[in-house]
Amino acid sequence: MAREIERKFLVGSDAWRSDVETSRHIVQAYVALDINTTVRVRISDGRKARLTVKFGLSRMVRDEFEYEIPLEDARQMVSANRDRLVEKTRYHVRHEGFVWEVDEYAGALAGLVIAEVEMQSEEDAPALPTWLGREVTGDGAWSNARLAVNGLPVEAQV
């Protein structure tokens, strides 16, 4: 089991693009979800698949269990859950000792860009890049699971 400790932000500009180190295409579908638990299947670059179970503990911390699964199984799970799907490209951007994951969404969420930084503890204080917008850590409306089910939050649709 791993503990995920992260902060999440909307992205305010494209200035991060010049610092991209790697990227991968992700398709993920939510097999099951409730208020504090999600089960998702993720296919990365059409080649690797993982099943992930997350349990919410606080605004910033979650327990995470992740397992590699056969690609064909993942494809079937994605197909069965097309109404709870997120498609995005994830970019890795290093900034002052931390690696930021910048997700640029496609499909119904096209135009949305969110950045997350994983930390070792809740006390970590990563330097915030200038290209970040509003912090949405702990705001469930911006979780991938809720975006997959509900689409963009109303405040983003104005």
Score class of each variant (00 low, 15 high):
residue 21 E to Q: 13
residue 69 I to G: 01
residue 134 R to V: 14
residue 48 K to V: 14
residue 146 R to P: 00
residue 41 V to D: 02
residue 18 S to K: 15
residue 64 E to P: 01
residue 72 E to T: 14
residue 50 R to M: 10
residue 147 L to Q: 01
residue 6 E to F: 08
residue 14 D to H: 11
residue 135 E to T: 04
residue 20 V to Q: 04
residue 154 V to Y: 05
residue 64 E to D: 04
residue 73 D to I: 10
residue 76 Q to E: 14
residue 41 V to R: 02
residue 103 D to E: 13
residue 68 E to G: 13
residue 75 R to F: 09
residue 136 V to C: 04
residue 92 H to Y: 02
residue 117 V to G: 08
residue 70 P to S: 04
residue 29 A to C: 03
residue 140 G to I: 04
residue 40 R to T: 06
residue 125 A to Y: 00
residue 9 F to V: 04
residue 122 E to C: 09
residue 6 E to L: 01
residue 46 G to L: 11
residue 104 E to V: 15
residue 55 F to E: 09
residue 63 D to S: 12
residue 144 N to Y: 12
residue 22 T to D: 14
residue 153 P to L: 07
residue 143 S to M: 00
residue 120 Q to G: 11
residue 36 N to T: 15
residue 37 T to L: 03
residue 111 G to R: 13
residue 63 D to H: 10
residue 100 W to A: 09
residue 134 R to G: 10
residue 3 R to G: 02
residue 98 F to N: 02
residue 95 H to F: 15
residue 152 L to A: 08
residue 87 E to I: 13
residue 123 E to S: 14
residue 2 A to K: 12
residue 6 E to R: 05
residue 76 Q to F: 08
residue 105 Y to M: 02
residue 91 Y to L: 11
residue 61 V to E: 14
residue 24 R to S: 11
residue 17 R to F: 05
residue 48 K to D: 15
residue 144 N to E: 08
residue 49 A to W: 08
residue 138 G to I: 03
residue 144 N to T: 06
residue 22 T to A: 14
residue 13 S to N: 12
residue 2 A to P: 03
residue 132 L to S: 10
residue 46 G to N: 12
residue 113 V to I: 15
residue 42 R to I: 07
residue 57 L to R: 09
residue 28 Q to W: 02
residue 50 R to Y: 08
residue 31 V to G: 02
residue 95 H to L: 04
residue 18 S to H: 13
residue 38 T to H: 01
residue 51 L to R: 07
residue 147 L to R: 01
residue 34 D to I: 09
residue 131 W to A: 06
residue 14 D to I: 06
residue 102 V to Y: 11
residue 95 H to S: 08
residue 127 A to M: 10
residue 152 L to F: 08
residue 15 A to V: 09
residue 14 D to P: 07
residue 70 P to W: 06
residue 85 L to S: 02
residue 74 A to M: 10
residue 70 P to V: 03
residue 17 R to Q: 13
residue 24 R to Q: 12
residue 6 E to G: 03
residue 21 E to N: 07
residue 122 E to N: 03
residue 146 R to I: 04
residue 120 Q to V: 06
residue 82 R to D: 02
residue 38 T to F: 00
residue 93 V to Y: 15
residue 117 V to P: 11
residue 89 T to V: 14
residue 52 T to D: 07
residue 75 R to M: 12
residue 89 T to S: 03
residue 46 G to V: 12
residue 131 W to R: 10
residue 121 S to Y: 05
residue 41 V to T: 11
residue 120 Q to K: 12
residue 73 D to C: 07
residue 39 V to T: 15
residue 86 V to D: 01
residue 69 I to S: 01
residue 14 D to M: 09
residue 7 R to T: 06
residue 62 R to V: 00
residue 74 A to F: 08
